[in-house]
Design a protein around this nucleic acid. Sequence first.
DNA 1: AATAAGATGTGAAATATATAACAACATAAT
DNA 2: ATTATGTTGTTATATATTTCACATCTTATT
Lengths: 216, 216
Amino acid sequence: MKVRNNISNSGQVQVPTPTLRRLPGYLSYFKALKIGGVEQVSSGQIASVFKMDSTLVTKDLSYTGVKGRTKVGYNVEQLIETIVRFLDFNTRENAFLFGVGNLGRALINYQGLQHYGLNIVAGFDTDPGVINTQIRGVKIHALDDFRDLSIKTPARIGIITTPDGSAQEVADLAVAWGIKAIWNFTPQSIKVPENIIVENTSIYSDLAVILNKLNH
Amino acid sequence: MKVRNNISNSGQVQVPTPTLRRLPGYLSYFKALKIGGVEQVSSGQIASVFKMDSTLVTKDLSYTGVKGRTKVGYNVEQLIETIVRFLDFNTRENAFLFGVGNLGRALINYQGLQHYGLNIVAGFDTDPGVINTQIRGVKIHALDDFRDLSIKTPARIGIITTPDGSAQEVADLAVAWGIKAIWNFTPQSIKVPENIIVENTSIYSDLAVILNKLNH
DNA sequence: AATAAGATGTGAAATATATAACAACATAAT
DNA sequence: ATTATGTTGTTATATATTTCACATCTTATT
Ligand SMILES: NC(=O)c1ccc[n+]([C@@H]2O[C@H](COP(=O)([O-])OP(=O)(O)OC[C@H]3O[C@@H](n4cnc5c(N)ncnc54)[C@H](O)[C@@H]3O)[C@@H](O)[C@H]2O)c1
Ligand SMILES: NC(=O)c1ccc[n+]([C@@H]2O[C@H](COP(=O)([O-])OP(=O)(O)OC[C@H]3O[C@@H](n4cnc5c(N)ncnc54)[C@H](O)[C@@H]3O)[C@@H](O)[C@H]2O)c1
């Protein structure tokens, strides 16, 4: 009896995941405000931009420890600094990227990531036509080169953008090399040891939500 | 007083959003099972793959109307058909894509979307070097060409993959052309009329979750 | 100076989501 | 046939998240 898996919620999460997921959106808005020369912003303004309740905004912001002033609002500069620090977007976290195809290439080219704490230090691919090329200073390697690289520039994050079918084998490899967190862009679900972090980015989930809203 | 916005949750949502977001993941797994020749699968198996509670799996699946058989499990073929129909992944929904750069090009090249209900019928860009080229049969147009196109192949979905700064102006344009839903890949939050659907796909949210798990 | 008004911040209530408990049932083994 | 076992599906409970209510504070106005 009682066959059902009971995944214990080990790590006691202090900040709600929904909050964590909303914070980068606020941050991007605050950066735009700063560029526009705006120095103060109220929770009501923020709420109207994101179409949500303003108390939720204040709750979200309170987790980061930022303090607003009554009648004045929050200081934009301070918001940016606090959130960036809170989300660890100020640390340069090294990452390896596996599968330098359409999406992988786009991610390496994407300079935005560097301003959000992620530093792709190397790409890996099986295609001889891609190996030993460079994209924005990031060198693409054969899978065998890992040993040298993980010594020179160790990375804790592995980004998987290979074809669906290769996701599991690449994940196994990455884990064997000491990768601690896998960012999986394939729709394939992958199995990893207990202590390895996996985050799946599935655009199909977003698509499902869009189609549902459109049709119902 | 009572300045706080109270966004009424109009459309009475029958299926929880978390469920909606999990279903494509299941679907992808079931498709892999089918390829592997597996005909039946139990909620326990599914749960262990996705590291979740099996009752949640059955709850999620029950929303789609699919029926499992005691002691046997669910029929894989039937699961696929039911979920595809439930998520409207069987309908070909036309979409315009704005901003044929790194990410936009990847999305057009990505054939996966076609199997998930989305049909990108045209791209738009401002770069003369890109205009009038073709990617996988999808023609890239100047922004002015919209009138002809929206008559020939009307689209309800607009995908925005322009630089951050152009997101709002492109959104305004798209709405003016009759786009009903905007799929925004920029981190920029955009303002649209009440009746327009906006779905933001932010990889920064995923990144925030990863960094949080890694560091805390 | 006193008062009014607008905004934050916090604890309580409401809602949404996930987990647990259990009944019903199909299959396999005895 | 009968019993044991594994699995679905539903109802109840627990947890997580959001919304509400209100006290508190800051600035502007008279
Ligand atoms: N293209 C998109 O816009 C997009 C969007 C969302 C998700 N995805 C997913 O991302 C993944 C990649 O998509 P894509 O369009 O970039 O595919 P792609 O075919 O363009 O690129 C895949 C790359 O991986 C390489 N590769 C193959 N096997 C490998 C291995 N074992 N180790 C390392 N590299 C290997 C290939 O040589 C190729 O360069 C797919 O799973 C897809 O479902 C793509
Ligand atoms: N590259 C990625 O992997 C990635 C990942 C996540 C999010 N994003 C976001 O996607 C967006 C695009 O990123 P990218 O790397 O593809 O940028 P990019 O610069 O490679 O592409 C942008 C394209 O948009 C075109 N464009 C500019 N103004 C336009 C306008 N007004 N109308 C139509 N087209 C216009 C440009 O000519 C260019 O072709 C950015 O907001 C970025 O933050 C990118």
